[in-house]
Amino acid sequence: MTEYKLVVVGAGGVGKSALTIQLIQNHFVDEYDPTIEDSYRKQVVIDGETCLLDILDTAGQEEYSAMRDQYMRTGEGFLCVFAINNTKSFEDIHHYREQIKRVKDSEDVPMVLVGNKCDLPSRTVDTKQAQDLARSYGIPFIETSAKTRQGVDDAFYTLVREIRKHKEKMSKDGKKKKKKSKTKCVIM
């Protein structure tokens, strides 16, 4: 069974824990209790493949930012979460993405942009803004509501699919490099 290491990042209060708990335990946590770091595991079937999701729910508070490099190193894919009623959390996505790329030393890291709290009427981040940002990053965008469960499975499952595509691409690139290195030079 394939294991996928997913990391949920975003500013404090955007609903990272609520999304994760909704996926794992099928219930909505409405009281806000700032996370330092929590880890969850769940076995699911995605596109006919049974897999184990190892999900790291991270601290959004700035005082825990020193811990970010460590979990970013171990993560295979990242859910970059903002709240649709919090423009600052949307603007912060850029910083999370840049930090992930720096730590992973790669421009090509599996990510999904997630606009959470889409059940709320007080939207300050337009869907088109988020779609445009995701398009500019070359990553999928999904709106979710941890409260109603809308888009929750889709967000995590899409990230797994992005990781699969990335692994497939990397193995193809690896095979191309191996083929090239088999060419021999004969000096007579």
Rank of each mutant, 00 (worst) to 15 (best):
S122P: 07
S65G: 05
I84Q: 15
L23N: 12
L53K: 13
G151V: 12
Y40D: 00
L53Q: 06
N86L: 01
Q61C: 03
L56P: 00
A11V: 08
G115M: 10
M188K: 10
Y40I: 02
E63R: 01
Y32T: 14
S181R: 10
Y40C: 01
D153Q: 10
K5V: 03
Y4L: 14
D30R: 05
I163A: 09
D108S: 07
Q61E: 11
D54I: 00
D33M: 01
I84C: 14
A134E: 05
A18K: 00
E31C: 12
K178R: 05
M170R: 12
G75R: 02
K177I: 11
T50E: 10
L53A: 03
V114S: 01
K117P: 00
T20Q: 03
T87G: 12
M67I: 12
A155G: 11
K169P: 15
I187L: 10
T124G: 11
T35G: 14
D153I: 09
L19I: 08
S65R: 03
V112M: 13
D38W: 01
L133N: 11
S181F: 09
D54F: 00
R73I: 07
T158D: 06
Y157D: 08
D38F: 00
I187R: 04
I93M: 11
L79A: 07
Q25L: 14
L52I: 05
L6N: 03
G60A: 14
V45L: 06
C185P: 10
R97M: 15
K88P: 15
E31K: 08
I24H: 00
I139S: 05
T58A: 10
C51A: 08
D173E: 09
M170V: 13
P110H: 03
D57N: 00
Y40K: 01
G15D: 03
E162P: 02
V125N: 11
T183E: 11
Q25P: 00
V7M: 10
R68S: 02
E31N: 08
D154Y: 06
F28A: 02
R135C: 12
A155D: 05
K169W: 03
L56T: 09
K88H: 07
E49S: 10
M67E: 06
Q25T: 14
K128G: 06
E63H: 04
E63I: 01
M188P: 10
Q43F: 10
H166K: 13
A66K: 05
D30C: 06
Y4E: 03
V45N: 10
V114Y: 12
G174E: 15
E98K: 02
K5C: 02
V160R: 05
K177E: 10
P34L: 14
A59E: 02
K16V: 15
G151I: 10
C185H: 02
V7S: 07
K184T: 04
D105A: 10
V112K: 01
R123M: 12
I21H: 14
K177N: 08
A11L: 11
V186F: 14
K104P: 04
R164K: 15
K101C: 13
D119R: 14
Y64C: 06
G115P: 03
V112I: 13
V14T: 04
T183D: 14
Q150N: 04
I139N: 11
V29Q: 03
Y157H: 09
F82V: 11
K178V: 08
A18H: 03
V125E: 11
G75W: 03
E3R: 03
Y32V: 03
D54Y: 02
R41V: 00
V152D: 09
K88D: 15
V112A: 03
K165W: 08
D54S: 03
G15P: 02
A155W: 15
L23V: 11
A59Y: 04
G15H: 02
H27A: 12
T158V: 10
T124A: 11
I24Q: 09
D126K: 10
H95I: 07
K117M: 14
M188L: 07
L23Q: 14
L52F: 02
K175M: 05
L6F: 08
A83Q: 13
R97K: 14
Q22H: 10
A134T: 04
I139L: 14
S106P: 03
K180M: 05
G15I: 01
F156D: 02
R102T: 08
S145W: 05
N86S: 08
A134L: 05
M67C: 03
V109D: 01
T158K: 14
K175Y: 11
E37R: 00
R161C: 05
